[in-house]
Amino acid sequence: MARIIVITSGKGGVGKTTTSAALAMGLAQRGKRTVVIDFDVGLRNLDLIMGCERRVVYDFINVINQEANLNQALIRDKRCDHLYVLPASQTRDKDALTKEGVGRVLDELSQSYDYIVCDSPAGIEHGATMAMYYADDAIVVTNPEVSSVRDSDRMLGILSSRSRRAENNDEPIREYLLLTRYNAERVDVGEMLSVEDVQEILSLTLLGVVPESKAVLTASNNGIPVILDRESDAGQSYADMVSRYLGEEVPHRFIHAEKKGFLSRLFRG
């Protein structure tokens, strides 16, 4: 049986798709059979971030409507054999996601994969609730600012009441916090919420802190999950996140601003 992970936030633009791509790639690189599903019907982006937009023939909705089978719709990643992408439809609307249809597809995927990563759309509407309904784990992506924190909090409330696990009175969804677009310098001068501030409000297990980084945009534009950019701080922190998700103890990095040394100050101004 696969473990179903939903990447969610409530607020848009916080880095859900970037995180989904990075997590899926990270799990696959460790030999886990992984599929990542784009639930953002009508505004699909995951295929772009994964760099497989030209290979989309059938999509998630086709599979739900039984117009295509899973093998026709799944796109195998060219960089990693264990990773598959199930793209969203760009032409339908979110109502095409039915609870039964999504459940059937996830059941079928569960037979042959270890992890199913669900990239949730922003908001708390139908698409987002469908993405989280069947989840076992939830990674709540939050930016260190008040509106994002509040939306995440709202999302956590919905997670604990409107999921399959909640309805069946099973063990609740495991909830993790991922802070993205974190700028340690701005935190130090009090312009941004700190890790501690966010933790105090949300009180969740911290899975990682991803610093604001130019590498993320560059990677997205090139269709490469940022986790593959091992030189960048964002890539490294996503790799740490995957390790922590798999139960390894990894110290948090990039939380505090680096003290600029005398020489670097001299040369960089």
Binding site: R150, D153, R154, L156, G157, I158, S160, S161, P172, S203
Partner: peptide, 8 residues
Amino acid sequence: KRPVRSGQ
């Protein structure tokens, strides 16, 4: 025993 979240 669980946190009461925004909107609940």
